[in-house]
Design a protein around this nucleic acid. Sequence first.
DNA 1: CTGCAAACAAACCAGTTGGTCTGTTATTTT
DNA 2: AAAATAACAGACCAACTGGTTTGTTTGCAG
Lengths: 200, 200
Amino acid sequence: MTTRNPQQTRERLLKTAFAEIHAHGFQGMRVDEVLRKSGLKKGAFYHHFNSKVDLGYAVLEEQIRPLLESVWLRMLGEIEDPVMDFPRMLDNLGQTVPPEMREHGCPLNNLAQEMASQDEGFRKRIVSIFEDWIDGFAAVFEQGKTKGYIRKNIDSRVVARFMVAVLEGCIGVYKVEQTAEQWIACRSQIAAYLGTLRPE
Amino acid sequence: MTTRNPQQTRERLLKTAFAEIHAHGFQGMRVDEVLRKSGLKKGAFYHHFNSKVDLGYAVLEEQIRPLLESVWLRMLGEIEDPVMDFPRMLDNLGQTVPPEMREHGCPLNNLAQEMASQDEGFRKRIVSIFEDWIDGFAAVFEQGKTKGYIRKNIDSRVVARFMVAVLEGCIGVYKVEQTAEQWIACRSQIAAYLGTLRPE
DNA sequence: CTGCAAACAAACCAGTTGGTCTGTTATTTT
DNA sequence: AAAATAACAGACCAACTGGTTTGTTTGCAG
């Protein structure tokens, strides 16, 4: 018969759930719909996960966190001069980003805004991922300092925290407005802000 | 008996629904719970509103839009020098903001992130409110130009669009992190950004 | 004063939802 | 090979959810 593959089954559930959560939010995501789209049954689901919330946590840790790493942290790792390179990367991202991201925005921020104040388990995990992102940004600015691209007396973590907030804000408003105008405005002003980090 | 007051009944429903949506999101808000908290019954609800979605639209137009006007647009109207005055207003806001706003963030952005890609009726109304907000900011920068506080060659609407995005981003991340550190970082960097708008 | 529409109350309902339970089959352990 | 267990399938269910219906009361126009 069809040979069993529990790891793959679990992954199928996670991938489908991730897409459904991204599209409808966690509360809007329906377990039955995940099952329908993944072609699996209740038995499989509740064998791999204890509850809907448990699935949500797993999506955060096993789908969203790796996505942040493979997209943003990888990107940040390639930055030489933050002031010049980052805005260019934003342009690049703006053109390569898949349509579902354009439509539904940042999966992490969506879950964050929906669930942070609803469930402490969600909030803690989301904070942890945000901190990783902030760490990634801070490292870029620290490196930028040693290479002379960034003023020595700026606080890299403060700037990093702001950058994460700005990006989520820009992505979020773009998701609502759905106009190039909004994205271009954000991109240009992010570049202007980064200019303040330059040594005199 | 208890004298009837349809306007007040409607307002009670809207006020309660606003609080429930703010606390649990639109999808998480339950009609029955709004009824319980407002002390009213199904008959009253479906007399004043056609559906749950209809109530959501009404909350946007009759609660959230006026709130934006009474908080942000009023604030912006009092600004003389945007670069100096706005960060100070942020400090003030950070201290006077009610606890439910601290916990649940911006009611407009919450609804925006949750419902924009779910329902076009929501998205359009939210865009309309965002545009009002952007208009308010743009007016401040335009006035700032004539008074010599702002460089003449900046595009007020671009800056305004960015400011709205930044604010929503900062409020959103703060809502998750719940630390003064995050808020202070955003405040200081918003001030730094606004500095780029100064004439040389 | 009367009729009539507006403003509710309250019981009711059908579809949905997350979750359970029982059974069956594949896989690993002994 | 036998026993145990992991990995499912599929029927089932109680609670919930938005919405409807029917009936009653209040206020107001004529």
